[in-house]
């Protein structure tokens, strides 16, 4: 195993961005502790301007901003980054730590199985439950008898 490909890294970053700090910390608690990372950029809250497209598929326009918290740490040779929606600094710090740790082939499989997979599963379950609620509100049309 070598460095992760970008697509794989994007996937775990996406899962961590949607997870609450307590969830991540809870799952990490069951694994061997990670070393203390060096803080390259302490957690910092700022804004990202969210863009839409005119008419849904035209050129971009600025819709409005959203709060985002970022953090960067170093663990050995790997630099871990986090950019997560909202203002939870603890979440950003844990996400950055995990992004760094997951880049280490020696740690990756255990962390994918112990943290990322369970988080992804919960997130998928919540999405599925919502999709089923939406499905219950889908209209089934039926034709009326034609009157003459």
């Amino acid at each position: 195993m070598t460095a992760p490909d970008t697509e794989q890294r994007r996937r775990w970053m996406a899962v961590l961005a949607r997870a609450r700090a307590e969830e991540i910390a809870g799952l990490l608690a069951g694994l061997p502790p990670l070393p203390e990372p060096e803080r390259l950029r302490p957690p910092e809250t700022g804004l990202v301007m969210v863009r839409g497209r005119m008419g849904g598929d035209g050129g971009p326009f600025n819709l409005g901003e959203m709060t985002v918290t970022r953090c960067a740490v170093r663990l050995g040779d790997a630099v871990g980054h986090a950019y997560v929606a909202g203002r939870d600094k603890r979440q950003a710090e844990l996400a950055a730590l995990l992004d760094a740790a997951l880049q280490d082939p020696a740690r990756r499989d255990a962390l994918l199985a112990g943290v990322i997979a369970p988080l992804a599963q919960r997130q998928q379950a919540a999405r599925d439950a919502e999709a089923r609620k939406a499905a219950a509100t889908r209209v089934e049309f039926f034709a009326m008898q034609t009157t003459r």
């Binding site: 060096e38 390259l40 950029r41 910092e44 630099v79």
Partner: peptide, 12 residues
């Protein structure tokens, strides 16, 4: 990127 060092200790 490997040699990335810290910026301001206290950014604010």
């Amino acid at each position: 990127m490997t040699a990335l060092t810290a910026g301001f200790a206290d950014p604010v």
